[in-house]
Every structure is written in C-alpha cells, then in structure tokens.
Amino acid sequence: MNKKIMLLSSFIGLILLTGCTSTSKYPSSEEQNKITQFTQTGIHYYWHGGDLSKAEKEFFKGITLKGKYDVVENSFKEASLLSPYRTDLRFGIASTQIIEKKTTDALNTYKEILAIYPENFEAGILLAGYSKQIGDMKTYSDTIENLKKNNPEKTQAYLNKFENADKNMNIQLNTQAFKVNGKHAIVILGYALGENGVMKPTLIERLKQGLALHRKNPKSPIIVSGGVQKGGVTEAFVMKNWLVSNGVPAYLIHMDDQAKDTVGNAIYSTEILAKLAPENVTLISSASHIRRGLSVFEEAANLKGLNLNYTNLVYLDYPTVQEAQKVSEAEKLVIYRDLIRTSGIWAYPGIQQ
C-alpha cells in the first residue's frame, strides 16, 4: 500500500478511535469557543503550571494528569479533535511531546500532519531534524529527499542550519576568561530567579564569569538577557545591579528584559547587538546550556544579516570539563528544537515561538 495512504488511514483510524465528532474543516462557533478555551488553558499551563486536580475536573474528565505538560498536551489534543484539519493544533501537540521527551509520539504527530498535508514543509523539516537526532537516518534521508522536490533552496538552508548546530555540539568549552581583540561585546544569559527575585547560584556563577571577562576586556559592552519576573524584578535587572555593585560601569551594560527563554534571549539580544555592531561576541552561560545558546544566537544573527564571530565562556556545572564536553541525546533534541524555533517555525503557531 502507498505510504501516504497508510498514514492517512492511520489518521482516520485515530479520529474514529478517539471519538472525534468534528470531521469538518470548519468547526461550529460552539466548537471554536471550546478550541480557544483549550488552547488558552494549554499555553497558560505551559508558562505557569497550575492545579492539576482542577484541570482534571474541569477539562479532562477520565484523564490522570502527571504534570503541567500533560495539561498542555491534552489541551491541544482536545482542541485538535474538534478541528482535526488544523495543523497549528497538531504542532502544539508535537512540540509538547518533544518537551516531555516523547520523541516517538512527536514524530508520529508530524507524520499525521504530513498524511493530511503532504507538502507541509514545517512538519517535514521537524520530522527530519528530530529523526536525525535519534539516529533514524532512513526517515531523515527519505524526508529530506521529499522536501527537496518542492523546496530545494529552503531545504538546503535548513541543512546548513543543522550543520552549524552539529558544529556547536563539538566546540571546545572555555572556563577561563580571555582577552578578545577587535570590537567586542559580551552577552550573559539569565537564569530563573527564586522567590522574591533572589538570584540562584547558577545565575551568580554566570555573572562571576561575566565579571572576569569584563576585567580582561574593560571597554566591551555587556548585554544581560532575561525577562522573566519574580518578586517584581527581571533577571536582567538584578544582573545589571550585581555587575554594577561589583565595579562594572553602568553605561557599559545593556538590558534585554523581554526574553522569556533561550530563543527570546537570542532574538532580543541580537537586536541590541545590531545597534552595538561588534565584530566578536562572547556568549556566557552554563556549560550544559552553551551549545544551545550558541546555535540560536548564530541563527538569530544570520536572520538579521549580521556577521558575528562567537566565542564562549562557561560556568562549569559538571564535575569535570571532560564530562561537560559530552552531549546527551536529550540536549541534541533541545538544540534542534530551539534552533528551528529561532528560524521562524513556531512551537505553538500563532501563540508561542
């Protein structure tokens, strides 16, 4: 049987098994209201979490929820049952499954999208990228060949992005501050604040590395990036205050207080970098985070047409540098996920990049 027919048959079977009553491409106004309610619930739990027992009682009768991402996934699943032809809802399901490390489920969700819309580039490139990272090279190769038939240039562009991310997985991590020649800027990535806006040890260690690098490069401007608020302050705000209290001139420090995650760090900090116009940028983060950070920052710079040379300085959150150099399968998936998000393919289309 033709592969596309098999996938479509599986999709139709899924609809029948789950009891979907809406096979129309155009949900009723009542169904649309429910879809909106489900998606709003999902994205609220994505950012804030909430009462799981309340969510079970009000929205997901008969479903036991194990955590906030269960709420997100099931929210988009319920919405998709009401409008099975809407790809944005299915992308929401798959993105949450990736977060939950349900990679096989996510790949099947992308295949369901392709069964309905075989030429959907976004589903295809996500299927290819994640298949590559779990070692399913046949699916990766077959999907890339199909994508090249209709979108050769766009497909090649993503292959170049993947190649750059793979390069970053093999970078040498720098744990000691160094002098940088030429026009230079420093970017320090934030980390979630504790209650009442208190900095956690990880963020302080990143700032210590930033301070050490500043002392080697005292004229370099510094971007502090992080916009999640706790206790009425953002990461960027407390980061700037810490640096100033440790002798860094305030005029050197630029705040990105909008970013809510690593992708936001890259997008908003790159806007500042475009104005500063450095040649070289040193990105500072934890060793476990730096490869993802570099991949998304380089992508954000490329999208803005900036030719920046990136170096790294890390806070070593591993027992040894040798252990830090190893890249886990989970980290590879997250690097590809955030790279693709930065490139413009949203995790939750129309809601959250």
Rank of each mutant, 00 (worst) to 15 (best):
I15P: 02
I171T: 07
V296G: 07
E73W: 11
Y130I: 12
I204F: 13
V314P: 13
G62Y: 02
A347Y: 08
N181K: 13
Q37E: 10
F60S: 10
T39V: 15
F297N: 01
N265G: 14
T21G: 05
S295G: 05
I99G: 07
Y117Q: 06
I98H: 10
D88F: 09
E31C: 05
K167E: 03
L316C: 11
G135R: 14
S10D: 14
P152I: 01
E331G: 08
P249H: 08
D70C: 06
I113N: 09
A192D: 02
N241R: 01
T320N: 04
I144C: 09
M169P: 12
T234M: 10
K101L: 10
A123L: 02
S75P: 09
Y251N: 08
I12H: 14
A115D: 09
I188R: 02
H44W: 05
N217G: 00
H48L: 11
G210S: 00
T23Y: 06
K304P: 03
V233H: 11
E205D: 04
R206V: 01
K161A: 15
N108A: 15
Y45P: 04
Y336L: 15
I125Q: 02
A330D: 11
G124H: 08
G247T: 03
N312V: 09
T41Y: 01
I284N: 08
R291A: 12
G210N: 01
I186M: 03
Q209H: 05
N246Y: 15
P319I: 08
L313W: 04
T320S: 10
S24K: 15
G305H: 09
A123D: 00
